[in-house]
Amino acid sequence: MRVIDVKEVAEAVAEMAVQTNHFLGDDVKCRIKCRAMEEPWPVAKNVLEKIEENIAIAEEGVLPLCQDTGLACVFLEVGQDVHFTGGLLEDAINEGVRKGYAEGFLRKSVVGDPLRRINTKDNTPAHIHYEIVPGEQVKITFAPKGFGSENMSQIKMLPPSAGEDGVKDFVVRVCEEAGANPCPPVVVGVGIGGTFDKAALMAKKALMLPLDRENGDPYYAEMEKELLERINNLGIGPQGFGGETTALAVKIMTAPTHIAGLPVAVNINCHVSRHAERIL
């Protein structure tokens, strides 16, 4: 058994909140750079170059990449041989969010109740998912989620007869309906199978997969490629001004499902596709 003080968790969360809001992952940066070079439409190329300029300014550490520094989504994979001490784990995660968002001068974008809408003023509570895994490590993934893109996400309970074509048409339609709203070029996370809730969670987790690594299942790797091509044939382009680069990548996660169902969820992320991992 390994003992971990929850203060370590709080510290890691606070650091990642600041880090993710100023520095994009190399995979995302690289994809944007490639697209800026390859984009055939001048207006679109210009927008992609401005986005690169924005990334460079944020890396100086003074101004966050985007003013929507997100709702703090935290994913914890906890080894089953870990014992936490020093307080409640959930409190520590929220303490980390509070500290990171205050000390990093990040925006507080959370309301305590969805209808009464009073800002909690410290960006808590975080949205936390726990998973118990073998071993004695803790993996923390921190992903601040902006809501311009979150609002354009959709879920559909398709009948199994809709099949592969039904799933693909739905994914493309969601991107077309989103248009300019989610700050394209977007990253498209797709969850297929499971249950209503599982599909949505997979779609969100898919957004955190490295963009430079292919899907391990050749069937879905092919589907990701085809979907990316179809989305980029829509012509929406960066910021919706027209052009080829509407999406940077499509990422799919799947799970076994019921004989009667074919759930499919599409979670959209903007080009500021932020996430970081830390292993304790």
């Binding site: 944020a58 003074v62 101004l63 966050p64 990449l65 985007c66 003013q67 929507d68 520094t69 001068f105 990040l106 925006r107 974008s109 311009g148 609002n151 709203n181 989610p182």
Partner: peptide
Amino acid sequence: YVGPTPEKPGNPIGSAGPTTSY
């Protein structure tokens, strides 16, 4: 249509891009 991040000391404003208009 913007809700900026808090400004750091010495800066007029924090990050300040547009929010979705609809």
